[in-house]
Amino acid sequence: MDEVKPTKVIDARGSFCPGPLMELIKAYKQGKVGDVISVYSTDNGTKKDAPEWIKKSGNELIGIFDRSGYFEIVMRKSK
């Protein structure tokens, strides 16, 4: 993870589902192929929803990382 530098970081901590996922989708729509998008979240529902959306939309899930008091989901825009 440390070697992957996000193109965009979304701090959605404190926001409830579906806020973090919708923020991620918004960043995806605005980004370009190859962009690495990272979202910080404290909402457990996002841990399930975001990877499912990343998979269904044909993008790459780089990882889900536990941080202190929140977690980080990182994806790469593949198309």
Partner: peptide
């Protein structure tokens, strides 16, 4: 629906 369900609240 935009999410993996039919309404926001599971």
């Amino acid at each position: 629906y935009p999410l993996n369900r039919v309404f926001t609240i599971p």
